[in-house]
């Protein structure tokens, strides 16, 4: 049903062995409340159409890693940071950051990545429909029926002409998923997308989303601190381990399989 309404163009249908993200020794350091925080990713390889969950407690660096994967945060060090959203067109993200190729990074983000924020991140001055169609407008995609289709699948087709402020938390998250998927990206990143929702609503939304990404052959990377929920969704889990290093001056967080 999903694919019938929301067909992905063949160019974006990645082979399931394509490596979408390839990270080696990626490091990002930040100062949080006066204490050094270091996120370390020794090695992560994410294949096309994989469904990944970054699991760890709050403040362990899940969002930081997602932001780096979304190309909105540059790594401080890396041996290797490649993204291959379209089969065979690998891009060296660390080099793009290093050479200040912001427009290229924007271009990749605009075209291939959808990002769902914890509270939706919908623009309050646009209607739900306008929010959803914004990524499509940027890509000058044809004004077909896909907005109505995806809204129907996510159960928000009656809310399309409302402003986000008039929606419930659950409806806002559905709209956020719709916006993230409207331009048919090959990668969907979600930062604790159901953290503010009750378990029943969470289950309903994630069931629809999982069906959608399966049909659309999208690679999903979601951050969560809810172990039980992640295990129920049958996701590959990247766990986080944290320890104080350098005499406790730095809190180091490491992600691994």
């Amino acid at each position: 049903m999903v694919t019938r309404y929301f067909q992905l163009p063949s160019i974006y249908c990645l082979n399931s062995v394509t490596v979408v993200y390839d990270l080696k020794n990626v490091v990002k350091e930040r100062l949080v409340d006066g204490v050094g925080f270091r996120l370390q990713v020794p090695s992560i390889e994410i294949k096309a159409q994989e469904n990944i969950a970054l699991v760890g407690h709050s403040g362990c660096g899940k969002s930081t890693l997602l932001d780096m994967l979304a190309l909105i945060l540059h790594p401080d060090k890396s041996d290797h940071f490649d993204i291959d959203p379209v089969d065979g067109k690998s891009q060296q993200v660390d080099k793009l950051w290093h050479h200040h190729r912001q427009s290229r990074l924007s271009q990749i983000r605009k075209q291939h990545i959808g990002y769902v924020l914890q509270n939706g991140g919908l623009l309050p001055y646009l209607t739900v429909r306008e929010n959803i169609e914004l990524p499509r407008r940027l890509l000058k995609l044809a004004d077909d029926d896909s907005i109505n289709s995806i809204a129907k699948v996510l159960g928000i087709h009656r809310q399309l002409d409302k402003l986000p402020g008039l929606l419930s938390a659950g409806e806002r998250q559905r709209a956020a998923f719709a916006r993230a998927l409207s331009h048919r990206p090959s990668i969907l990143l979600a930062d604790e997308p159901t953290a503010a929702l009750d378990p029943i609503t969470t289950r309903k939304i994630m069931a629809v989303v999982m069906e959608l990404i399966k049909g659309l052959k999208i690679t999903l990377i979601t951050a969560s601190h809810d172990w039980a929920h992640v295990y129920k969704m049958d996701l590959r889990v990247l766990k986080q381990e944290a320890e104080p290093v350098e005499n406790g001056r730095i809190y180091q967080s490491t992600f691994h399989d």
Binding site: A70, S106, L138
Partner: peptide, 13 residues
């Protein structure tokens, strides 16, 4: 926040 969302969606700086 809104300006960051616009950049996230793909608007250039």
């Amino acid at each position: 926040k809104d300006l960051s969302v616009l950049r996230l969606i793909g608007f250039r700086s």
